Simulated scan of single mutants.
Amino acid sequence: MKCDLHCHSIYSFDSTQSVADVLERAKKAQIDVLALCDHNTVEGSLEAQLQNEIEIISGIEIDCFCKDTIIHLTAYGMDLNHPKLLELKSNYIKELDRVGSIRLKLVEDKYGCKLDENKIKGMTHGGYPYTNVEIEKVLLEDIEHPDLNIYKTGSKSNSPIANYFWDHLAIGKWGYVEMKLPHYKEIIELVHRLKGVVICAHPKVTIAQDLDLINELIESGIDGFEAYCSYHNQEDALFYKEICIKNDLCMTIGSDFHGSTKPNIQLGDTGYDGDCTRIVHDLKRRIQEKQR
């Protein structure tokens, strides 16, 4: 069995592929079980469940604060029609809208330029306001600056949008604008209340191997960690696999596919080459236990 338990469709503000395209790619990659985990919205997961060619596990990825960092929690098996999830999406869109113009001004000041805001707005989709993704695209297309060459033709051009974000717009960087996001404990409580399983996605990216944060998440009721993913090397994967085994937690695997926004990541690129039967079975078992 082959699975990808963390991928995105066009319902995510920073992804480019339709649900139909994601499903077609999954079939070509011979993926048996798929979970669409769009950012703070369940529309992709709901649409995917309308077909019956590939098994779908319902999912969502939720952005939230954990101390001084932002972590991403993937949740599986919830009631996707619950009003709380619509509220979650609405609040997230409001925050994207609020910080967009602030971030645009920071970028313009940094490079001493003026970006075409109408062009930026024209790149949005799905009812989302413009975000760092559209700002970065126009910046890299229209502005000549020596500091940008590494993202255009240099060593970071394989995934320029993601690389530029982590280098310049993430927490602690000059272009960071704080968003009002829920606290991770609220999200764990919400997912459990909606009878779902909650996993810390690509933890190496957000919490590295910080045992204090890991133990805090475990004590707060996290159900597991995404051990294998496109951002983890084998050392990272084995580290989180051992965390899951030691604490009887659920281990998941996922590519974090986003389409052309992250062109170096293909659907099914999880870093896990083994049979996924036990991984999928364990996730389903834990979902069933929540729903009893």
Rank of each mutant, 00 (worst) to 15 (best):
residue 2 K to C: 00
residue 2 K to I: 11
residue 2 K to R: 15
residue 4 D to C: 12
residue 4 D to Y: 12
residue 7 C to P: 10
residue 9 S to W: 00
residue 13 F to R: 07
residue 18 S to N: 11
residue 18 S to T: 15
residue 19 V to H: 03
residue 20 A to T: 09
residue 25 R to I: 03
residue 30 Q to D: 11
residue 33 V to D: 04
residue 33 V to H: 00
residue 35 A to P: 03
residue 38 D to V: 04
residue 41 T to Y: 08
residue 45 S to Q: 10
residue 45 S to K: 05
residue 46 L to T: 11
residue 46 L to Y: 00
residue 49 Q to E: 11
residue 52 N to K: 11
residue 53 E to G: 08
residue 59 G to Y: 08
residue 60 I to M: 02
residue 60 I to R: 02
residue 60 I to E: 04
residue 61 E to V: 05
residue 63 D to S: 15
residue 66 C to D: 10
residue 66 C to L: 14
residue 69 T to C: 12
residue 69 T to G: 10
residue 69 T to S: 15
residue 70 I to K: 08
residue 71 I to G: 13
residue 74 T to P: 07
residue 75 A to Y: 11
residue 80 L to Y: 14
residue 82 H to T: 08
residue 83 P to G: 10
residue 84 K to E: 14
residue 84 K to P: 01
residue 86 L to F: 13
residue 90 S to C: 03
residue 91 N to A: 13
residue 91 N to P: 00
residue 94 K to I: 07
residue 97 D to V: 08
residue 97 D to M: 09
residue 98 R to E: 05
residue 98 R to P: 03
residue 101 S to K: 11
residue 103 R to E: 07
residue 103 R to Q: 15
residue 103 R to S: 01
residue 104 L to V: 06
residue 104 L to P: 04
residue 107 V to C: 03
residue 110 K to I: 05
residue 113 C to Y: 04
residue 113 C to P: 09
residue 114 K to H: 14
residue 116 D to W: 06
residue 117 E to H: 01
residue 120 I to F: 05
residue 121 K to M: 08
residue 125 H to P: 10
residue 129 P to W: 04
residue 133 V to H: 06
residue 133 V to K: 04
residue 135 I to T: 07
residue 151 Y to G: 12
residue 151 Y to F: 14
residue 152 K to C: 08
residue 153 T to N: 15
residue 155 S to E: 14
residue 157 S to A: 13
residue 158 N to K: 15
residue 158 N to R: 12
residue 160 P to K: 01
residue 162 A to S: 13
residue 163 N to H: 13
residue 164 Y to G: 08
residue 165 F to M: 03
residue 165 F to S: 01
residue 166 W to D: 04
residue 171 I to E: 15
residue 172 G to E: 09
residue 173 K to R: 11
residue 174 W to K: 05
residue 177 V to S: 12
residue 178 E to T: 11
residue 181 L to T: 05
residue 181 L to A: 02
residue 183 H to F: 09
residue 184 Y to W: 08
residue 188 I to P: 00
residue 191 V to Y: 02
residue 197 V to P: 00
residue 198 V to I: 13
residue 198 V to R: 09
residue 199 I to D: 01
residue 200 C to L: 14
residue 205 V to F: 12
residue 208 A to I: 07
residue 209 Q to P: 01
residue 209 Q to E: 12
residue 211 L to N: 07
residue 211 L to W: 11
residue 212 D to P: 00
residue 213 L to Y: 13
residue 221 G to E: 07
residue 222 I to Q: 04
residue 225 F to I: 12
residue 227 A to E: 01
residue 229 C to Y: 08
residue 230 S to A: 14
residue 234 Q to V: 02
residue 238 L to R: 14
residue 240 Y to N: 06
residue 241 K to P: 05
residue 242 E to C: 03
residue 245 I to Q: 10
residue 246 K to P: 02
residue 247 N to P: 04
residue 247 N to L: 05
residue 247 N to R: 03
residue 247 N to D: 13
residue 248 D to T: 02
residue 248 D to N: 15
residue 249 L to S: 06
residue 250 C to M: 06
residue 253 I to Y: 02
residue 254 G to T: 01
residue 255 S to F: 08
residue 263 P to K: 07
residue 265 I to M: 03
residue 267 L to C: 09
residue 268 G to T: 09
residue 270 T to Y: 07
residue 271 G to S: 12
residue 273 D to T: 13
residue 277 T to N: 09
residue 279 I to R: 09
residue 283 L to H: 09
residue 283 L to V: 06
residue 285 R to S: 13
residue 291 Q to H: 15
